[in-house]
C-alpha cells in the first residue's frame, strides 16, 4: 500500500472537527415535497391487476396541495414580488418595528415571488365555482410543520374553509388575512382559535381581489397590523 495514500487519509481524518460529526434531520415536509415533485413528473406506471386488467392510477377529484415549482424553473416578473411591508406602510403609521420586518420580508422576496407565480387569475367566473388555495410554508420565514389547503365555495353565503395537516403553533396567536395581490389592502379575519376551520367570507370583499390567504404569527403587542411573520400563504384560484 502506498505510504503516501495512508498519510493523506490520516491528514484528512485528523482534520475532522466536532461540527463534521453533527447530523440534523431534514424537516418532514422535505420528503413530502420530493415525493410530490417526482409523482408529478413521473406518473405511476399502469400496473396490471390480479385479473390481468390494467388499472390506472386514481385521479384526485378535489385538488390537493400543489408543490411550489423549483425556483430556477419559474420566471416571475420582479413586480410580482410580495412585500407585505409595503402594504403595511400604507395601512399603518411608521413604527420602530417596521424596519426589522421590512428586512425579513425583503430577504425572503425571491422565494415569495415563486408562491405568487403559482396561479393566474381568471375573472370569467360563474358564481358557484370553488376557489382553492394551496398553502405551503416552505418559502416563508417562520416555521410551520405542515401544509394546508383552503377552499371557498362561491354561493350566497361564501365560507372559506382551511384544512391543516399539522397543528398551528400555539405559543403565539396566529391571525388569518385576506390580501390583495398588489398589496394595496388586506383584511384580517381574526385570530385563529384551536379547531377553527371555516370562516364567513366578508360580504364586502371580492374574492377576485382579495385572493391571497395568509396566516401570520401576531404577538400580543397592541399593533393590529400584519407582523410580517407569515407561516402559511397561498393564492385562491379557479379549481
Amino acid at each position: 500500500m502506498a505510504e503516501q495514500e495512508l498519510n493523506d487519509w490520516k491528514a484528512l481524518a485528523q482534520s475532522i472537527t466536532d461540527d463534521d460529526r453533527v447530523r440534523h434531520s431534514p424537516p418532514p415536509m422535505v420528503w413530502d415535497n420530493i415525493q410530490a415533485a417526482i409523482a408529478e413528473s413521473e406518473p405511476l406506471p399502469q400496473r396490471p391487476t390480479e385479473d390481468g386488467n390494467v388499472m390506472t392510477a386514481p385521479v384526485a377529484e378535489t385538488p390537493s396541495l400543489s408543490v411550489v415549482p423549483e425556483a430556477e424553473d419559474e420566471i416571475v416578473p420582479q413586480e410580482d414580488v410580495i412585500d407585505l411591508s409595503a402594504a403595511r406602510e400604507r395601512n399603518a403609521p411608521a413604527t420602530a418595528r417596521k424596519t426589522r420586518r421590512h428586512l425579513i420580508l425583503a430577504g425572503a422576496a425571491s422565494l415569495l415571488a415563486v408562491v405568487v407565480g403559482l396561479s393566474l387569475f381568471n375573472i370569467d367566473r360563474t358564481p358557484t365555482e370553488t376557489l382553492v388555495a394551496s398553502v405551503s410554508n416552505e418559502t416563508l420565514p417562520e416555521a410551520y410543520d405542515g401544509t394546508a389547503t383552503a377552499s371557498l365555495e362561491l354561493d350566497d353565503a361564501p365560507m372559506l374553509e382551511i384544512s391543516f395537516d399539522a397543528a398551528l403553533p400555539t405559543d403565539e396567536p396566529v391571525e388569518l388575512w385576506l390580501i390583495k395581490p398588489d398589496l394595496s389592502d388586506m383584511r384580517s379575519l381574526g385570530i385563529v382559535q384551536p379547531g377553527d376551520t371555516s370562516w364567513d367570507w366578508p360580504d364586502d370583499l371580492d374574492p377576485n381581489e382579495y385572493s391571497i390567504v395568509d396566516l401570520s404569527i401576531e404577538p400580543n403587542d397592541g399593533d393590529p397590523t400584519h407582523s410580517g411573520r407569515s407561516i402559511l400563504r397561498g393564492q385562491l384560484t379557479d379549481m
Partner: peptide, 29 residues
C-alpha cells in the same frame, strides 16, 4: 437525507437547507 441536509446547514440557514435538500433528491432521481 440527513447527510445532505447537514452539509447544507454548514453554509445556509435551515429553510434554505430544506429547499436545497429537496432539490438534490429530485435532481438525483
Amino acid at each position: 437525507g440527513s447527510l445532505v441536509y447537514s452539509i447544507c446547514r454548514r453554509s445556509v440557514d435551515d429553510a434554505a437547507a430544506a429547499d436545497i435538500t429537496q432539490e438534490v433528491f429530485i435532481a438525483a432521481w
